[in-house]
């Protein structure tokens, strides 16, 4: 059924869990719709006025509708308890350790994704509203020792494959929503709140970051790009960015 639903390629470790539930739910929907639709067509033909000139006052007997309703409830409880809640819990309760992950900050603004890598020292530099400027959209303090080697990009993210990624998401202005369709990741970036989100890319490729929450007139073009690549390619990219930083 997965091909049938036409979802984007599943390229993260947990995407399979999401997609499995998606398929199951759609099977349930299909069965119910076909069942009800078949019944509807049957009664419309069978009980049309010319075939049934006088209605039965009592109508349908029996309690099987109760059984169907019970069945639907059971199916929903199973989907909820054994699929949805565990998968959700793995997303929000079981964060990997930062040492073993690629850690990135993403600060959304109208209409761009400001990306902040901690650099070789693994520490994010201090940021300050007062330092905001056209060339420094993050307000990053380069005089802070931790911030000297930080790598910043706009609308460009790179991740090494098969290693967990933790994105610390926030917003400078409006509510945006950080969507990586192929990772089955979507999380609102809400000003005033820090939202961590994590996933493990398992397939290399180049895809797009899509803003999913109306954030103003440029919402439609708030598009970024992300690349999942081998660790070697990722390191090379980081080195390239670091060299670029030195030039400045």
């Amino acid at each position: 059924m997965m091909d049938w639903l036409g979802m984007p390629v599943a390229a993260s470790a947990h995407a399979g869990d999401v997609d499995r539930l998606m398929v199951l739910v759609h099977w349930l929907m299909l069965v119910l719709f076909v069942g009800w639709g078949g019944f509807l067509l049957y009664v419309l033909v069978r009980f049309r006025r010319s075939a049934q000139p006088v209605a039965m006052h009592k109508g349908m007997r029996g309690s099987w509708s109760t059984w169907i309703e019970g069945g639907i409830l059971t199916a929903e409880v199973i989907l909820l308890a054994f699929f949805s809640i565990p998968t959700w819990s793995a997303r929000v309760d079981a964060f990997p350790s930062e040492q073993q992950s690629t850690v990135v900050r993403v600060v959304a603004e109208q209409y761009a994704w400001n990306v902040h890598y901690p650099g070789p020292d693994g520490l994010f530099g201090r940021t300050d509203l007062a330092l905001l400027g056209p060339s420094n959209p993050l307000g990053l303090d380069r005089s802070d020792p931790a911030g000297r080697d930080d790598i910043t990009t706009i609308n460009q993210m790179h991740f090494p494959v098969d290693r967990p990624v933790i994105v610390h998401l926030s917003s400078k202005d409006m509510i945006h929503s950080f969507a990586l369709p192929q990772m089955r990741v979507k999380q609102d970036a809400i000003p005033g709140l820090a939202q961590p989100v994590w996933f493990t890319p398992t397939t290399t490729g180049q895809w797009e970051i899509a803003c999913s929450q109306l954030c103003g007139l440029g919402h439609y073009r708030m598009r970024g790009f992300y690349t999942v690549e081998s660790t070697a390619e990722y390191e090379a990219w980081l080195a390239e960015e670091a060299a670029f930083l030195l030039e400045q």
């Binding site: 979802m7 869990d17 999401v18 539930l21 998606m22 739910v25 759609h26 349930l28 929907m29 119910l32 719709f33 009800w36 639709g37 509807l40 929903e76 989907l79 909820l80 699929f83 949805s84 998968t87 959700w88 929503s177 969507a179 369709p181 089955r184 990741v185 979507k186 999913s212 929450q213």
Partner: peptide, 26 residues
């Protein structure tokens, strides 16, 4: 009846948080 049925059924994947992730705001 069937139209309302489709509307109701498609609410299921949106009401489950896990499947809501890819579908939310689409």
């Amino acid at each position: 009846l069937p139209m309302f049925g489709i509307g109701g059924l498609t609410g299921l994947p949106l009401g489950l948080a896990t499947t809501d992730v890819p579908l939310h705001d689409t």
